[in-house]
Nucleic acid binder design. Sequence first.
DNA 1: CCAAAGGGACTTGTATACAGTCCGTCCGGG
DNA 2: CCCGGACGGACTGTATACAAGTCCCTTTGG
Lengths: 221, 221
Amino acid sequence: MSKASDRAYAQIRSRILSGELAPGEQLAEEALAELCGVSRTPVRDALRRLEAELLVARNDTQRTFVADWSLDDVADAFDLRASLEGRAARLAAARMTPEVIARLRAANALVGQAIQQPVADVAAFLEGNRQFHAILLETANSRRLTALLNTLVEQPVVWRTAHFYDQASLVRSHGEHTELVAAFERRDGDWAEAIMNSHIRRAYYAYSDAHRRLTIAPPGA
Amino acid sequence: MSKASDRAYAQIRSRILSGELAPGEQLAEEALAELCGVSRTPVRDALRRLEAELLVARNDTQRTFVADWSLDDVADAFDLRASLEGRAARLAAARMTPEVIARLRAANALVGQAIQQPVADVAAFLEGNRQFHAILLETANSRRLTALLNTLVEQPVVWRTAHFYDQASLVRSHGEHTELVAAFERRDGDWAEAIMNSHIRRAYYAYSDAHRRLTIAPPGA
DNA sequence: CCAAAGGGACTTGTATACAGTCCGTCCGGG
DNA sequence: CCCGGACGGACTGTATACAAGTCCCTTTGG
């Protein structure tokens, strides 16, 4: 979209993802407008987009809040995501070509490098991950699936999951991508789907374990 | 949403669904504003919503058009819908209660009456259908799934499919709903999912057959 | 005759003013 | 002390004016 509207969208979005705007917090259009240095009109546009992505929610009287996800919501989202990404993997397997495989390998190599650092480079890990999944989606060649998954993946909770990973999880994640490539080489859609399903589910449990550690933290922490 | 915005949304939407606004046609905000008797602001809101539903599309310079679906797009949408509705049926089976089953029966009874008329009452058929699927979604209890399916179902092509059905198809559709209830009574999620999958796929073929009849019509028609 | 440049009509983007609605607070009565 | 209603601030919805960008047609030069 146009400049002011884009700026508003990007600014609000990054503030939500970073947690600077906390879940449950009310978002007044005028305040956001001032924050982004634009008028209310593009802010309203931005909020519409963020609402579609479920990053913000409205109450019955049209006031807007940063979406507050219960653990159930998170489970719901991961569940659906596992199913849809599994489906994408299966579709991609059917349309796989040597050259796409090469691109997938390259993306996964990024991930490999990121986890070999003394302290894993989480940003690089995420970027490699993103590329891998993007190539896969592109190959699956379903506009709707792509649109749906993009909104599911770009959630704060999903996004931050990798930060909860320990080294072993990062390595396993990399290994699963490698295995996916193997499934693609054999054009085995069922295998690819199964790996992907397991891949996402593990990510969910990494999240929920970390969540439990953090919320049922030592009393007085 | 608020009054003017809602009116704009409803008006434009119904004109697209009815075909009065044809696929590919450009939608100028000002013209729509006049058509709906409101200013451009609520029209822009409405277009955003319709864009999220994929009823309208934008080109790279932000001009808006009535979405034009290729047969591939339709296949893609039905495919995804089969998968998601199947999933919903499975989830619903796990949470089924006698009272929900009673409601499903009631909705299906409407469908039964509709097809027993000398000439099937398509509107009543659609309404019963809608209720059945809505109850099912509500029981599946996944906010995201509900949101996604609602956008998938409310498409012109999906919506008009029933008008292409012959009497036999209507009867079979009703029968599948009855079978779904049986699966729910046994809380057999796998069975429910399988029926639902087949249910949606058959709807797709009914559509694509009709499409073929209409587009590869007798030369000179 | 074709191609590229220019200009004018049209469409969308943004700012702003005003109207309508909601929410909390404060005051008075029971 | 508690409850209810009215007032005031704050927020969102809508209309409108103006700015910026796009499209298309015409015109001009090769």
